[in-house]
Write a protein that binds this DNA or RNA. Sequence first.
DNA 1: AAAGATTGAGAGATCAATCTTG
DNA 2: CAAGATTGATCTCTCAATCTTT
Lengths: 157, 157
Amino acid sequence: MTRDQIDIGFKAWRSFLEAHAVVIPRIERLLDSATGLPFTWYDVLFQLSCAPGQRLLMHELADAVLLSRSGLTRSVDRIEAAGLVAREAIPGNRRSTHVVLTGAGKERLAQAVPIVTRGVREYFTQHLSEEEAAAVVRILGGVRDHARAGSGAEAPD
Amino acid sequence: MTRDQIDIGFKAWRSFLEAHAVVIPRIERLLDSATGLPFTWYDVLFQLSCAPGQRLLMHELADAVLLSRSGLTRSVDRIEAAGLVAREAIPGNRRSTHVVLTGAGKERLAQAVPIVTRGVREYFTQHLSEEEAAAVVRILGGVRDHARAGSGAEAPD
DNA sequence: AAAGATTGAGAGATCAATCTTG
DNA sequence: CAAGATTGATCTCTCAATCTTT
């Protein structure tokens, strides 16, 4: 790796960190002021809505929403207390639990989706041409996949 | 914006979120196990080391490290208690404070830099060609700059 | 013993309110 | 009053340890 590559690589890294640090709070703020929903709650509801039967096992949901197992337990506690999801026992499997989207959860998500969609477009996709979006998918998708697979000994949880 | 653009834009957004969610904990883990330093501490020390006189005002530092004002106050409290930075009064300006890197802070940073450099390379820049890194700088840098500038009414702090 | 999920303890972050200085 | 920084209250996350089921 040449000197220039090191420099441009470092700049890419900082752009990545800074874009995240700027965009995420903007979208959280937008979502909260419009719906009172934290972004992490939104992600839980959204991932459940994408799943068949609108339900997932706790550990499947943890993987989907990019949270640790214990972090998800706390989060689901709160979202369940708010009535937007429910834990359901699974017949014939007493060590796993399903998390299901409730009717109230669906309604709340339906309010939130257009807000988030607007925020993501305004703060992120608006600046990307189709080619650039494809480049981001390829580049950052590759980063994600390699980091997940690589050096398995360092996997969390 | 066409239908395909919406889809690819959404995929780009998810890749961005997921890459961050996977890579950051990996690097935090690496840094912590090698030096005992949290990544946020590292960033504070690093930003100070880049500044002339190795010192910055609190609000300058807050901008540099991508943390809220109050978040930085707490963080500097802890780092100062550990002896790695010091607050210094500014002659002729009694409402601002300088944060300065101490000798111990420099040593600690010197240990940490190669670790972080290695982690960033392993989990991030390794997968980027020079062209791709330049694309990331251009694209995500643009996202960052527009989000910072745009819709000023929503700026935090 | 391993998988799935939860809990206790502790650290860190944010918002809104406050204090001080200019 | 505005700028700079801090504090109080609250929320959420993570790690390590634990409990239950297979």
